[in-house]
Amino acid sequence: MREDSSATGPIIVANQLTRHYKVQKNALKTGRFGLGLVRREMEIVKAIDDLNFTIEPATAVGLIGLNGAGKSTLLKLITGVLVPTSGEVLVGGLQPSEHRKEVVRNIGVVFGHRSQLWWDVPLIDSLNVLRLIYSVDEKDYKQRLQSLTDLLEMGDLLPRAPRQLSLGQRVRGEIMASLLHGPNLLILDEPTVGLDIIAKAKIRRLIRSLIEEEGVTVILASHEVSDIEEICERTILLHEGRILYEGTIEALKAQANVERSLVLDVERGTGQGSDDVVVEQVTIPLSGNDTARRLAEVASLGTVSGAQVTGGSLEVILARLFDEATN
């Protein structure tokens, strides 16, 4: 079912992609707090504004943005749920809004907040219906079901209803349902929301293995920055419908030029007894030229019992970037 798309170039191409919404004007802007029964002032909101990007096959791209940045709208344009106001997005060479059924046949979608499984019946029943929705050949279905059951460790869970599963098990069930038809593009919207650290790690490993072993292209929209750091090679930062940054996470970190510091715990004697020590925290900026000299100075003060680098995390960089863009 999956085709080798590496020979055909990018799996997704967006050219001046734009989507506007017509919404009622905020009462705070208009000063009209009436019922709005007769007259309403409307305004155009640019949810997606002139986006240009490409996504290569078998890669993972993280989609990051504040609430209302346009992430969901972009995903809906890619899946053909919404029609662009202008410009175009091509998925596998086709415009999703014109060829929705053909395009989504090769897409799997996992909504972290919304299930595609029937809540009260065994998981296997939901998968059987999805087989018919996607017209998967019975022989292919059996093979695919077996390999996904092994990969996702779902053997014992197939006879159980989603309402009887833990959140982590349910997310694995959602991913299984999304991959049953062998899509070459997997769209994940907040897949790890609410999961514990063990379940999160499992889901992240699983997604990486899908990219590396099955050649699936992944678009991951998440507020969980660590998901994006661990899964994605590239990221697209969206802000008010426009691209704020597009590229690798390493380049983003380097480009951000955020002040990073080394915080050291230094133990030294109080001079009142051989066992009496105090622990002091010493912060050394890592950006200056005299880092080595300052380190030597600190080492001479006592024993370094702990060290931590602060200030350079992706989360801090993103917060600063979005803060600057907003103001």
Binding site: T79, V81, R100, K101, V104, I133, Y134
Partner: peptide
């Protein structure tokens, strides 16, 4: 409730699903 999106990301018409 957003269920329509769920239907539209499947390769079938709304009136089929």
């Amino acid at each position: 409730e957003g269920f329509v999106d769920r239907y539209l990301v499947r390769p079938r018409g709304l009136l089929t699903q």
